[in-house]
Design a protein around this nucleic acid. Structure first.
Lengths: 208, 208
DNA sequence: GCATTGTTTAACCAAATGGTTAATAGTGCA
DNA sequence: TGCACTATTAACCATTTGGTTAAACAATGC
């Protein structure tokens, strides 16, 4: 039944709604988003939103869990792999910056909503949404420290440093543009450079 | 006239309102905050908010400009000073982490609101709110690079790295707590350590 | 064709929300 | 004491907003 002509051509009302909701929730947050606005952006009637997703909260939940999935799922595959530590760092930074470049509003969205409602995260982690597993990466770092291949550093600190440098400039883009006094083009240039600059910076920082 | 007994004892309704508004705007953002809620938190009637601040937007503007002031005013004094580069980095990191520790919600608040409304930042910068001046710091970095005291690095990248590592863990606290799988106590410990860890990390990274 | 089922819309509704008003209480001062 | 002025409140108002409904419309199977 969802293979009729209209659906095929228009890719389905459901998908149009999700795309519109993603756009608006990410830009304005749950509280700032308006159902009417989402409907208009999807080119449909407001009642359709409720027909497909029952409530604002349900629709929001769809977008949010999609977002968390994207954000978290990138962590484990690379950091839990079998590359050398320095290669892991390079791969991770490149992959994460690519991802955030494609989805610049995503981290800020997640962080804002979690801040407003921290219980929810705990909740849905215990609800089966598996927590990303950094244990292997942490062991790797500790082992390299023990072997004196790198300086003494807590794996948690290294991880925070990596993630911070990758993500923050995207969350803070408008502020940084102002503070650094650069235009969009120059700022994009800076961001693009970071893909190679950050690994160098990090590896330098921990190399003995 | 505002020196009557009641005002003296109660520190002024205006201050109570601002304190309550700060608390709630920072936690929930402009769109998520409710005037009623702010009034209750200030222990007064909703109409009083309008009596003192006319509108939600005006009240928000007070909180926001106070916030931006705090966030930005810390940049110049240290980075624009006359210390050696490494000392500047140490002082900056310590000062900024202290500040964000005291005001953990402030960066996320600012960044969220600017993201939702980027024009406003431009606007009020041109409206006299002076932009923090990093020129001197940038020259300092470039000079150290030229003298080969540190590796070749764009000052903008160094600055972004510094700010990212100081600020991001506070914005991302709930998420990081989950990902790192640590409790509040342990996480606070990690954050406290960063005051000394980050400067070491950065200086290592740029030292020749 | 025609009944059945799923899709879409306009009109409507109730609650929430920012904001106003008019009346009241308090204070300084002549 | 009474006048002027500020502070404070309860009640009210208009708009916004999430959500519902009932009817129209379209597709599909028979």
């Amino acid at each position: 039944m969802q293979l009729n002509k209209k659906v095929k051509i228009e890719e389905g009302a459901e998908q149009k709604i999700i795309a519109a909701a993603r756009e608006i929730f990410l830009r304005k947050g749950m509280a700032g988003a308006r159902m009417e606005e989402i409907a208009k952006a999807a080119g449909i009637n407001k009642a359709m939103l409720h027909y497909y997703f029952r409530s604002k909260e349900k629709l929001f939940e769809v977008i949010m869990s999609e977002a968390k999935m994207q954000m978290f799922s990138r962590l484990h595959p690379i950091l839990g792999g079998d590359d050398s530590l320095f290669i892991k760092i390079e791969k991770f930074v490149e992959s994460y910056i690519n991802f955030v470049t494609e989805n610049p509003l995503l981290p800020g969205f997640i962080l804002h909503e979690i801040t407003k409602n921290p219980e929810k995260l705990v909740n849905d982690i215990s609800n089966g949404n598996k927590r990303p597993n950094l244990a292997k990466f942490f062991l790797h770092v500790e082992s390299e420290v023990k072997k004196k291949n790198i300086i003494a550093i807590q794996p948690e600190q290294l991880f925070m440093n990596m993630l911070s440098m990758c993500v923050f400039p995207f969350i803070g883009r408008p502020m940084l543009k102002t503070v650094l006094n650069v235009n969009d083009k120059k700022f994009n240039q800076l961001l693009a450079n970071r893909k190679k600059e950050i690994p160098v910076f990090i590896i330098n920082a921990i190399k003995r």
